[in-house]
Simulated assay, not measured.
Amino acid sequence: MSHVRIDGLTKRFAGKPPAVAVDNLSLEIEPGEFIVLLGPSGCGKTTTLRCLAGLETPDEGRISLGDRTVLDLREKVDLPPNKRNIGMVFQSYALWPHMTVRRNIGYPLRTRRVPREEARVRIEEAALLVDCAALLDRYPAQLSGGQQQRVALARGLAARPDLVLFDEPLSNLDARLRDQVRAQLHELHARLGFTAVFVTHDQSEALALGDRLAIMKAGRIEQLDTPERVFEEPATEYVAGFIGMSNRIALRRAGEGWTVADGAAVTGDLPVPRAHAEVAVRLRPDDLLLRPAEEEPPAQGVGLAAEVVDAQFGGRHMDVVVTIADSRLHARAPLTGAPWARKLARGQRVTAWFAKDTALYYDADGVRTAAHAPAAVRA
């Protein structure tokens, strides 16, 4: 385990103008902590990881592992990957096809010149940790995708590194294997307590694995917090959209009420201070519900006129795509006690609604609005 400190990390790629992949990024990782870098393609998460590993040389910044500085460009320090005592698990597994599982796991031990008997013990221990001890004499071509990924994980742990880096290691697995290996990785970290940085664009992986999540945008950290806080209290609209609140409704204040972009009135008030004339509402698909067009939303609900684009059977509910003004949104219509929802058809008019406390509200700059002011102190 190792404390990790990143200060002012900046990486540019040549071009006109140069592309800034990582922009003055600073981050501290506690010993034994599992940090997830989460964001879309091009946000800088993989470049950050490669700078940590020594596979990319940044333009500015300093990186230390424990009490050892591995990168300090002002002092002209830049240790190569094999001098940083880092384990890495790649997206593509990167197993040598001509080597057995045993030799693949032992490869980093050979490069570090670990004595043969000690290496044998470490290989077998690492294989046992990830449940692939029975595979040691097989070749990668004889393994399933899940088995290959477990071998890659064992290889990353065999040298007992100060830090383990994961570059989207589950993205090549099918859904069932991805869930299985993710659960095994979570259990393994709980048992061993290694320090880890995990890169992914999958929010479910991030929420399941991370002690803290760093949501990245344009080479910077937009929000750094626990999975629970990021999920329940996304600091900006960008984070809300990326963490699963994919429904966005732009509303404009009209007198004492609100309207959507085409001027249609909204039923119900929003818990938004009067200083905000425009607001973006963010919702998860589970929280946007449907009723027949002639029905109003329940108390504490906000209703909008909508039109059905598509409806699919989802078991105990219908998964429905609707349009509200020019926005295309995803909603759910529970089937229990609502037989009308089974007959939803394209072009049908409905009332889409949400409970006020299930939505989050953001201003024109994408920042969360303050809590709803009490009526007695409104302007």
Rank of each mutant, 00 (worst) to 15 (best):
V239W: 06
F194K: 13
E205S: 08
I215S: 08
I221T: 01
A264K: 09
H186D: 09
M245Y: 15
V230A: 04
A261Y: 01
T226C: 09
D225S: 01
D202H: 04
F231S: 13
L213P: 05
F231Q: 10
A264T: 13
P227V: 08
F194I: 13
P227A: 09
D202P: 10
T195E: 09
L251D: 07
R182I: 07
G263C: 08
A265V: 01
G241I: 14
D202G: 05
E222V: 06
V181T: 06
T195A: 10
E237T: 00
G210W: 08
G241Q: 14
R229S: 12
H186R: 15
Q223C: 08
G193M: 13
P234V: 03
F231C: 04
D202Y: 04
T200R: 11
F194E: 06
A208Y: 06
I215C: 13
A240E: 01
E222T: 03
A254G: 01
L207F: 14
A206R: 01
R253C: 06
I249L: 15
I243M: 08
I215W: 00
A214C: 15
E232S: 15
A196L: 08
V239R: 02
H201Q: 13
R212F: 05
V199P: 06
G193F: 14
A175R: 08
Q180N: 10
M245G: 04
V239S: 04
D202C: 04
A190S: 08
A250V: 03
L209W: 09
L213G: 11
R220K: 14
E237L: 12
V197P: 08
Q180R: 15
R176A: 14
E256S: 12
L224A: 00
R182D: 11
T259A: 11
V197N: 12
A208C: 08
I243H: 02
L188P: 09
D211Y: 12
H186A: 15
A183V: 06
R176V: 12
A214W: 12
G219L: 02
A190W: 01
R176Y: 01
L192V: 15
N247I: 05
D179M: 12
R176L: 11
E237K: 08
S246K: 05
G219T: 04
V199A: 07
D225Y: 00
R212S: 11
A264Y: 00
N247G: 03
P234Q: 04
A196I: 07
G193P: 13
V199R: 07
G219Q: 06
G193A: 13
A240G: 02
F194R: 13
E187N: 14
D202T: 04
L188E: 11
G263F: 01
A250T: 00
T259I: 14
Q203H: 02
G210H: 03
G263Y: 10
H201T: 07
R220Q: 15
V181C: 00
E228S: 12
L251S: 03
R253P: 03
A261G: 00
G255F: 06
L224K: 02
D211I: 09
R220F: 02
I249R: 11
R229Y: 02
V239M: 05
D211Q: 07
D179N: 12
N247E: 09
A218S: 15
Y238Q: 07
R191H: 07
